[in-house]
Amino acid sequence: MDIEKPIIELRRVTKSFGRQRVLDDLDLRIERGKTTVIIGRSGSGKSVLLKHIVGLLRPDRGEVYFEGRRIDTLNEKTLVPIRRQISFVFQLNALFDSLTVGENVGFPMTENTARQVPKAKIRELGRRCLDIVGLAGFESKIPPELSGGEKKRVALARAIAMDPPPKIILYDEPTTGLDPPRADVINKLIRHLQHEVHVTSVVVTHDMKSALEVGDRILMLYNGRFVADGSPQALLESDSPVVKRFIEGIAEPEELATISRHADFDGRR
């Protein structure tokens, strides 16, 4: 296979919900073996973008390719072998409530009917992945009993516990809700998977520290398009006001003006 070819490619993808246009004629090529970070304000369409990559959402216009094969026109059945090579960490974790943590982590392997992994191996791999995210011994708990950060970490363990390892991992805000040292572990984990297992990662995040640390390339989504695209260094040196404000965490003047406009919102004069 041609190494230079992008593993994922979106061509002129447009997606609207009702009147709201979320993705607007978007092009994206994701390189094999690299970690691509997508940043953007809340509601800018990052999660929607990730869902297009595994066919959970279909573009209104445009095309999506996986390893050179067009996938946005495939039906659910033919998507299965492709989805089995991709792991998805959902923003809200999407752990299965009725299964234990251990069963959740083993789920992608037990349900993979195309490749039967022995039970003992599933358990062993699950145990090790839980250990990596700092949840050794949590196997028999159920997700509703866990704290927010613990759930996130179970979701991360579920995404990496695959045999063979996934080709691509899509992370939707992997470090949100984690304490800083734990977030650091996850950043290192993403790096480790890239270097040792050659996993391609796409990381959606608001966490600039994490973005700068894991990203080979950072893109910023704004109004349905990319307004920045380059190395972390290039991003830091960008002179686009939108990008600058995002990195420095400074609101736009109009946004601040809304506070004074609604100064009496609590009933005081």
Partner: peptide, 25 residues
């Protein structure tokens, strides 16, 4: 209620993303 909760918490999407058909499962 059970399936609806799974739907709104994206568990059905998670099943699909792992290649398991939610209807069958």
């Amino acid at each position: 209620a059970e399936l609806g909760t799974m739907n709104v918490t994206e568990q059905l999407l998670a099943l699909r993303s792992m290649g398991a058909a939610p209807i069958r499962y």
